[in-house]
Structure formats: structure tokens, C-alpha cells
Design a protein around this nucleic acid. Structure first.
Length: 326
DNA sequence: CATCAGGGCCCTG
DNA sequence: CAGGGCCCTGAT
């Protein structure tokens, strides 16, 4: 059992210019997302680790508008040295994960007067679907999220990270870096089960193995242009079903119309938001969404969803609190 | 105390 | 294609 800890005591800065319209907070912090020690959002700064060319780096990302240009500043923390190549790679990785080079102006223009979207667009317009994680990292999080309460998911991820992750210390923060697929090859399923993650131990073993033998790679999937192909490859992974695929297509690969799937807990929330009813059939919700928002339907739903979670953060909304059981 | 479902997915019939 | 089982936990 390795308890790795790395102090990143050197720092450099880069800037990234996202495509407008752009909303920093909406893109870099999602209140509806599962909280973990992999990412922290404090006072307008997002802290996360990243691995590039096998080396760990710590990031602190913040909004840094320059006159009329959208701009973010990225402090990169490292040990010893950092090459220009590594800096460039980190930049490209951030652009990919946070969808910074896409253009959603048509979406904003088209729906800024939409009865349901006008308020969310007013407060979050320019928000992109994004993830702090690599594809592998995302799948690990999705695995921990399966068939349990958020509270237990948090515990499972904490235990996994303290046993298999790497603690990064920088900018007065402690952030964890996820383990590598190779690290999982070195531990037994039994060992993982002792961390009280249950049947997920097998899933983590099998997904990690698929990455190690390059049966699946993020690079190759990114080269494929259509969601059906990517979805098919992902579904072949043990422990990955349509719920996870739908999230991955949207948040990792940024298809704004991903897959036609809505989870039961989301169904309840959308029923309330769109119909002001308790439980509308999923098929009806999907039909309305596609009819109303077309090729943008999942992005539209994302705006609705994040908006209500932001509002709940500012002032508790009772019915929503009941749906997010910790 | 026991029972149960939870921010899925696999497998069987 | 529907439904039981899976690890474990906190709620009831």
C-alpha cells in the first residue's frame, strides 16, 4: 500500500483564451457534481492535479478577463523543471476537458428568450459541459457513483485515493491525483474489496486492465467523430452502461445531444423544472426536449439542471434537497 | 432489531 | 425486455 505525497514547490503561469461566449464559473465548477478530493473550487479558483507525460502537476485555474476577451489564467505547480512542450500539452488538455474551443453562440442566441432557458442563460450563458478528469478518471468516478448514495460514493473515493492516489501539496492546498490503470494491475480484487467498495472492485480491475492493454484509449476515441461509435466502444467495457455512456458523451466528448437517456433521479428533477409535476415519463421529457431544443437538447437540459443547483446553493430549495440524499 | 433502497449494470430466462 | 442480484450503509 503506497501512500504517496508530492510537494510541488515551483510555479509558472499560462493563459488560455476560450471561445466566446464563455462563462468561467459555470464551466469550471458544477454544483450538481459529486464532490471529491480530486478537485476543489475555492473563492473563484479551481484546483486540480493533472498528469502529463507521466509527471504530476498541480493546477490553479481562475478567471482573468482581458478587456473584451475571454481569458483564463492557469498557475502550474511542479517540481524541478517544466518544459515548453509539457506546458503546451497541459494547455491543450485543459482546452479539451473544459470544452474551451467550441462555439455555442447559436445556442445562446436561439434560446435566450426561451421561457425555460432565459433565466439560466442570463446567469450562466457561456457555460460549457466539462470535466476535470481524463476519460479513465471519469469512468472511475462513475463506477464509485453506481447504485449507492452520494455519501457512500464520497467515502469510497476517499478510501481509494488515500490507498492508491497521490497527494499533491501546492498553493496551500492538498489535492489528490488519481491512480493510474497500471497501479490497479498491481493490487488484487480482494485488496480492493477490503476498501469496502463491494462489487465495484471487479469493475475497477476490468476497466483498468482494458486501459493498460490499450483495448481502449482516450486518444483513439477522440479521433472518432460520431457519438454512436464512441458509445459502442464504451459500452463494451465491463461495468459501463448507458447512464455512464450518456454522461461521458456529453461531459468528456462534448456532444450537445448525447444519448437519449435520463436517469430516474434526474427524471424527477426535470419533471418539476419543465412540467411542474412530480414524475413525468422519461419518453415525454425526451420528446419535449428534442422538439424544443433540437440538436442542443442535452446542453439545454444541462443549463436547466446547473441553474437549479446554483440557486439551491444560494438559497436552499426544499424539494431539490430531498432528491440529493447524502 | 430487520429491512430496504440508493445518482447502475450484468446476466438470465 | 423485465427483473433479480450485487457490496455496503444509513434511514426507518
Amino acid at each position: 500500500m503506497s501512500k504517496k505525497c508530492i510537494k510541488l514547490d515551483r510555479k509558472t503561469k499560462i493563459y488560455i483564451y476560450p471561445t466566446k461566449p464563455f462563462n468561467f464559473e459555470g464551466t469550471f465548477f458544477k454544483p450538481s457534481h459529486f464532490p471529491s478530493k480530486l478537485v476543489k473550487y475555492i473563492k473563484g479558483k479551481l484546483y486540480q492535479g493533472i498528469r502529463v507525460n507521466g509527471r504530476p502537476f498541480g493546477l490553479a485555474i481562475s478567471d482573468s478577463i482581458k478587456e473584451d476577451k475571454a481569458r483564463i489564467s492557469v498557475d502550474i505547480y511542479f517540481t524541478k523543471n517544466i518544459s515548453e512542450v509539457a506546458k503546451e500539452k497541459i494547455k491543450l488538455e485543459i482546452i479539451k476537458r473544459y470544452d474551451l474551443d467550441s462555439d455555442i453562440e447559436d445556442f445562446i442566441e436561439k434560446f435566450k428568450l426561451d421561457r425555460l432557458l432565459s433565466a439560466p442563460i442570463k446567469s450562466l450563458g457561456g457555460m460549457k459541459p466539462s470535466t476535470a478528469y481524463s476519460l479513465y478518471g471519469f469512468l472511475m468516478v462513475a463506477t464509485v457513483l453506481q447504485n449507492t448514495t452520494v455519501g457512500r460514493s464520497v467515502k469510497m473515493m476517499d478510501t481509494l485515493l488515500s490507498n492508491l492516489g497521490t497527494k499533491l501539496v501546492y498553493a496551500n492546498q492538498e489535492i489528490f491525483l488519481l491512480w493510474l490503470p497500471e497501479d490497479i494491475e498491481r493490487v488484487s480484487e480482494e485488496f480492493l474489496r477490503k476498501l469496502k467498495i463491494g462489487y465495484r472492485a471487479k469493475i475497477i480491475k476490468r476497466i483498468s486492465h482494458a486501459f493498460v492493454i490499450k483495448e481502449i484509449t482516450e486518444e483513439k476515441l477522440r479521433e472518432k467523430a460520431n457519438k454512436e461509435e464512441i458509445g459502442k466502444d464504451l459500452l463494451e467495457l465491463y461495468g459501463v452502461g448507458r447512464q455512464t455512456v450518456s454522461y461521458v458523451l456529453f461531459e468528456v466528448f462534448h456532444f450537445y445531444n448525447a444519448f437519449c437517456y435520463i436517469a430516474p433521479w434526474e427524471q424527477k428533477i426535470f419533471s418539476k423544472l419543465i412540467f411542474n409535476k412530480n414524475k413525468v415519463p422519461v419518453a415525454d421529457i425526451l420528446a419535449i426536449a428534442e422538439e424544443r431544443w433540437g440538436k442542443w437538447w442535452m446542453l439545454a437540459m444541462h443549463y436547466l439542471f446547473e441553474d437549479i443547483f446554483w440557486r439551491n446553493k444560494k438559497q436552499k430549495i426544499d424539494w431539490l434537497e430531498k432528491e440529493i440524499r447524502m
